[in-house]
Amino acid sequence: MKTVLPAPDMSRAIVRIAHEILERYDGADSITLLGIPTRGAHLATRIAAAINAIEGGQVAVGTLDTTMHRDDLRTRSPKALLPTLIPPAGVEGRHVVLVDDVLFSGRTIRAALDALGEIGRPTSVSLAVLVDRGHRELPIKADFVGKNIPTSRTEIIKVNLVEVDGTDEVTIAEGGSK
């Protein structure tokens, strides 16, 4: 197991993503950040904090659980639901930025787009991820990427966040015998 994104690099990546988002949408007013629980939600909060630090306002931030929209429900045991918290302004007419920790097959994002479609019709939807590890199975790409990390399919990428794991770092490890 080795560290591919240490804590200081992670902080810089988050701040950079915040700047890129602001640049694309010309300010924070029309943006709604929706993090995908668990780690995506914490990253959304951090990106929101970075945006607020830059802009001085309060960017809308919430969470979007994709569990009930996944296409692989029938291949695993049912998981507990995680919170979906949509900010009061809703999603109609907003630039929604989905936030997740790792972009891999793209299936979670597809589920997130479906879940979002049930809620309303945003003006646009974009995607911010801390790590893009490749191996897409769907025509989905990230708009804002903390770090591209080329991997083999069997390698395991693990994003650790202080809020959940007690430390900030991204590690890569050899996969098990699959």
């Binding site: 659980d65 009930m68 929209h69 429900l73 507990a80 639901l81 995680l82 919170p83 979906t84 949509i86 809703g90 479906d114 879940a115 049930e118 809620i119 309303g120």
Partner: peptide, 23 residues
């Protein structure tokens, strides 16, 4: 407790944004 927690989450999303889930 898992059933109660799941119900609470489902109540929040179906009272709020999502009336119907594809699950």
């Amino acid at each position: 407790i898992l059933i109660l927690d799941t119900a609470a989450e489902l109540a929040r999303i179906s009272d709020g944004p999502m009336k119907k889930l594809p699950t």
